[in-house]
Design a protein around this nucleic acid. Structure first.
Lengths: 146, 146
DNA sequence: CTCCGTGCAAAGCGTTTGCACGGCG
DNA sequence: CGCCGTGCAAACGCTTTGCACGGAG
């Protein structure tokens, strides 16, 4: 997913383009981190102080519904990330400290589905948690033991 | 994990055995479902009306800390299940409708870890969501599209 | 008899929603 | 100029916590 593509999706679906949406999308486009609403607010507040929490939540919800963002739940919070290319299905390592993600190309679903006849599969999640190399070097340990 | 084993773990760690803890543990021992605090309260209320929400949360927290229960987050709620045998590492299919779980013996971690040198892995999650055979037959669809 | 476990009530936290105004198209 | 997007504030749902009483060991 790239920035212009995301803006196009907004337009096509009848959503207006505003400076704040632009700023939000640009933030995601520049980052490969899974971010909470609060992360986002902190990141943006430097460049864009006048962005309320409500607006962030509302737009995250819109973006996710349009497939611009993907999200996961971790430690009781929703974390959002720019959606990866749909053609290339994969999963993520997620740093529990800084939220940075790394692609895991392996998907175990194909081997598993045979053992689930009679079950109607609607989705799956394969995520690896830990510290990225940058955070391993650092000292403190902030997020709970996943 | 079996009921007597769980009670033993409580005792060894200096926790008292009470009727309400016994009732909670018995409920988990009899079920292979992932249950929210509210599920539990509803299940128990029939046989045991005098069990407050607080007590359930507090005990779930204790049980999980002692490894008696395992849990996952789904749809903004924590869902708990009797811990499976630690010696036999595996994952779960989880019915998004009734919470019932089914073992998935395959674990993709061994193939993946090679591509993550420099990363400090602390955990992983592999879960499959959908409807169990019983809920496929039924009509309504309650939980969100995982 | 001494703590731990419990119920009650209130607070905490992330998130959602009702309302009225202002700006995009 | 109509409607969507936004900020404000309040509500919401799940969960946690402070307090005082009652029961387990």
């Amino acid at each position: 997913m790239i920035l212009t593509e995301a803006i196009e999706i907004l337009k096509v679906n009848g959503y207006k383009y505003t400076d704040k949406r632009g700023e939000l999308l640009r933030l995601f486009a520049d980052s490969d981190k899974y971010m909470t609403a609060r992360d986002i607010q902190q990141e943006i507040q430097m460049a864009y102080p006048s962005l309320s929490t409500d607006t962030i939540y509302r737009n995250l919800s819109v973006f996710a519904a349009l497939g611009i963002l993907e999200y996961t739940e971790l430690g009781g919070e929703k974390r959002f990330r720019f959606a990866c290319d749909v053609n290339h299905h994969h999963h993520h390592f997620i740093c529990t400290e800084c939220g940075v993600s790394k692609d895991i190309s392996l998907c175990p679903m194909k081997e598993v589905s045979g053992g689930l006849s009679g079950y109607q599969i609607s989705g799956h999640k394969f995520e690896i948690y830990g510290k990225c190399p940058d955070c391993v070097t650092g000292s403190d340990c902030t997020v709970e033991g996943y």
